[in-house]
Computed example of a mutant assay.
Amino acid sequence: MSIEIALRAARVRYGPLEALHGLDLPVPAGTVTVLLGRNGSGRTTALRALAGTVGLSAGRVEWHGTDATRLSAHERARRGLCFVPDRQAVYTGLTVAENLALGVPGVPAPDAAPYPELVPLLSRTAGTLSGGERRMLALSRALLATARVVLVDEPSLGMAPEVAARTYRGLAALAVEGGAAVLLAEQRLPDGLPDGSLVHELRRGSRASSGEQVEYR
């Protein structure tokens, strides 16, 4: 199993508080990996550390075995990393079409869009969308891009069950068919993940357990 990106002995501090305590987190290519944990467990911080939107106080980020700790978030994005945070994931002052164009070339045709529900809304500004519609727009960037690393914090936040199921199928396809390293931060293990998906449970900034998804059902 080839490791695409990883945290090695990673520590992150927010002022006097340490959010990650020497976390080792390998994220293999061609696989869906899930970070499970309650709020405050460190799962969001782990994604941000990999994406470069928060700095490490100790440890390193490795990408294909080389030290990428000093690469900025923009440099990591240019190298093929796509990060979808749980909040503020779209540009509210831009239209749906403009948001899509920032992540992928052109505007998808209705039969090619991961969320056809967005097609009639292409001219609307993202700030006028519902929470679920904004989440679909944010996830479209990950599902349409050809990224090597896809990091998503709570993919189905605000989505209807049918749309959430479609989202997880799309994310699974990125790994299984596209070979991407897909890392999802979740409070509970979602349905619809491919066989062989990996799970790491975080507690208070450390890895409490690891295994395949069948062990967490």
Results as ranks from 00 to 15, higher is better:
Glu177Gly: 00
Asp24Pro: 05
His64Gly: 04
Asp195Pro: 14
Ser41Cys: 10
Ser41Arg: 07
Asp191His: 10
Pro120Lys: 12
Glu18Gly: 08
Leu129Asn: 10
Leu171Thr: 07
Leu25Ser: 05
Ser206Thr: 15
Ala181Tyr: 10
Asn99Trp: 12
Gly127Trp: 06
Leu129Cys: 12
Pro110Leu: 02
Asp191Trp: 02
Gly59Arg: 09
Gly30Lys: 04
Arg87Trp: 14
Arg13Met: 08
Arg8Lys: 14
Leu25Pro: 03
Gly40Val: 02
Pro110Cys: 01
Phe83Pro: 01
Gly131Met: 08
Ala58Ile: 07
Ala68Trp: 15
Arg188Pro: 00
Thr53Ala: 04
Val61Ala: 00
Leu129Thr: 09
Leu129Met: 11
Arg13Gln: 13
Thr45Trp: 00
Glu186Ser: 02
Ala142Trp: 00
Pro194Ala: 11
Ala145Leu: 03
His74Asn: 13
Ala109His: 08
Leu7Gly: 04
Ala160Asp: 14
Glu154Ser: 08
Pro105Lys: 10
Leu143Gln: 00
Thr92Phe: 06
Gly59Ala: 11
Val150Pro: 01
Ala172Tyr: 09
Tyr14Met: 05
Ala160Ser: 14
Tyr168Phe: 15
His21Lys: 15
Glu4Asn: 06
Gln187Tyr: 09
Pro26Ala: 11
Glu62Gln: 07
Leu94Thr: 08
Gly192Asn: 07
Leu121Thr: 14
Ile3Gly: 02
Arg203Asp: 14
Leu183Ala: 09
Thr92His: 12
Gly15Arg: 06
Arg60Asn: 06
His64Leu: 11
Asn39Glu: 08
Leu94Gln: 09
Val119Arg: 10
Gly158Cys: 03
Leu47Asp: 02
Val32Gln: 06
Leu139Ile: 01
His74Cys: 05
Ala142Arg: 02
Thr92Trp: 07
Ser140Asp: 03
Ala142Gly: 04
Ile5Phe: 00
Leu189Ser: 05
Gly40Phe: 04
Ile3Trp: 03
Ile5Ser: 00
Gly192Cys: 07
